[in-house]
Nucleic acid binder design. Structure first.
Length: 443
DNA sequence: CAGCAGGGGGCGG
DNA sequence: CGCCCCCTGCTGT
């Protein structure tokens, strides 16, 4: 940060990487997801915001789909491709086998994924002009411009008239619930199914418009010709034999997130963070998120306490009080967490507010949890940070809360504080006693 | 049964 | 306000 005339410029060094990473994490946790993509019987809860950001196709679709949580059924797109595209949209990178590239690109074009889709018809005129790409002249809202090396013109040769989603084509026959039974494995399903049809897949009628479960039939269908805003193609990872098995798994790499406090430089470091977001194995992402958030030079300001009124408590790291506080009057405990105010909201002295009264709502910066008690938030945050300050004197166990440690210690000491009043039974756990009491009741 | 997480009451500083 | 303590419910083995 630099100061000029008292004006501070606070910069969050690895903001982009952090942002993307958290987004990805949110998707894995299916948090805040507000649209479900369905293809091949699999369901992918994702975020409209992200889809809209990456695809005008989706943007327009959602624009005309007021329902809260639409389910978009994608025909003619393989779930493997869908997963790859989601990985691409969320992480900005995806690994794909060369043999699958054509199919993937085709899917990307159908969905008009920025950065992956190419302008369909290479300028009708001709390729004559080198920079004939549409985006060169457009304002371009900072959409990605990755470069895809065109290794072969496989797709362009075979599919010259291919893509462009059908302007109309309402989902006349909603075949989306067909496999509803086996389906809800919106799991991070990673279908390895290598289809043989591979390259030459029908793209004639691409994407079926949205339908949703519960809401009064929207006109979600009419996705009119979305403006073609496609960009350059993406760069494939060449010798990707190594990740064949997981070919489509999302993979993220980001720099500048090394949790160490060494990076005060302020520039993104190139240090790759080999986190492999294996969608199958959720993996302790929390820590990664925390690291990202707790970067020493990172912008903890918005996480900082509200009490600081105006002042930012940078450098104070993300510790216990790293939670935002807002007045419930202005924002409800749920639903508006996204608005991370960076200001100290309580100018007034809300000092002698009885605990639990309508004082401050403490919002967890990692999840939707909210509480009126700061000490509860402190405990809760440990569930994200993984901090377990209470260690068992008898074993290596450690707990995040003293209570839970005490509970654990009973397993060593054999203490059974819960005793049945009608028989000598004793239990070390409350719920065990309750279960035991049921027997007395039944008999 | 053990672990974990959330909520509430009480108390002292 | 922070901490201690207790209670409760859920989950996994």
């Amino acid at each position: 940060m630099m100061a000029s005339d008292g004006m501070l410029s606070l910069s969050w060094n690895n903001h982009k990487a952090t942002f993307c990473h958290i987004l990805s994490t949110l998707r894995e946790k299916e948090r805040y997801t507000d649209v479900t993509l369905a293809c091949e019987g699999k369901f992918y809860p994702v975020h409209k915001l992200v889809l809209s950001t990456c695809s005008e196709y989706f943007e327009k679709m959602f624009e005309h789909t007021p329902c809260k949580h639409p389910v978009v059924v994608l025909k003619d797109i393989k779930c493997a491709d869908m997963e790859a595209l989601l990985s691409y949209m969320y992480d900005g990178v995806v690994s794909v086998l060369q043999q699958d590239l054509a199919r993937l690109i085709k899917a990307a074009e159908l969905l008009q994924i920025k950065g992956l889709a190419v302008p369909d018809e290479p300028p009708l005129k001709e390729l004559s002009k080198k920079n004939a790409y549409p985006w060169s002249s457009r304002d371009d809202r900072s959409s990605p411009h990755p470069k895809r090396r065109r290794r072969e013109d496989m797709m362009t040769s075979t599919s010259q008239g291919s893509s462009l989603p059908p302007p109309e084509s309402p989902p006349s026959s909603p075949q989306h619930h067909q496999e509803s039974n086996q389906s809800w494995d919106h799991s991070k399903s990673h279908s390895q199914d290598q289809r043989e049809d591979g390259v030459d897949q029908r793209v004639g009628d691409p994407v079926e418009p949205a339908v949703e479960f519960s809401s009064p039939k929207q006109e979600a269908s009419h996705n009119q010709e979305p403006v073609d805003e496609s960009l350059v193609k993406e760069e494939v990872i060449e010798g990707s034999e190594d990740n064949q098995g997981e070919g489509m798994d999302s993979r993220i790499e980001y720099g500048g997130m090394g949790g160490g406090d060494s990076n005060t430089g302020g520039e993104e470091q190139g240090s790759k963070f080999p986190h492999q977001l294996d969608t199958k194995h959720p993996q302790p992402l929390h820590e990664a998120v925390v690291e990202a958030l707790a970067g020493p030079s990172g912008m903890q300001g918005w996480l900082g306490t509200g009490e600081l009124g105006g002042g930012f408590s940078m450098l104070e790291g993300y510790s216990e009080d790293g939670n935002q506080e807002v007045h419930p009057a202005s924002t409800g405990p749920h639903g508006t967490q996204q608005s991370h105010q960076m200001v100290g909201l309580n100018g007034d002295g809300s000092r002698n507010m009885k605990r639990g009264a309508v004082g401050k709502v403490h919002l967890c910066p990692f999840c939707v949890y909210s509480t009126l008690r700061k000490d509860h938030m402190t405990k809760h945050i440990r569930t994200h940070t993984g901090e377990k300050p209470f260690t068992c004197p008898h074993c290596s166990y450690s707990a995040a809360s003293k209570d839970n440690l005490r509970q654990h210690v009973r397993t060593h000491t054999g203490e059974k504080p819960y005793s049945c009043y009608s028989c000598p039974y004793r239990a070390s756990h409350r719920s065990a006693l309750q279960f035991h009491m049921l027997k007395h009741q039944s008999s």
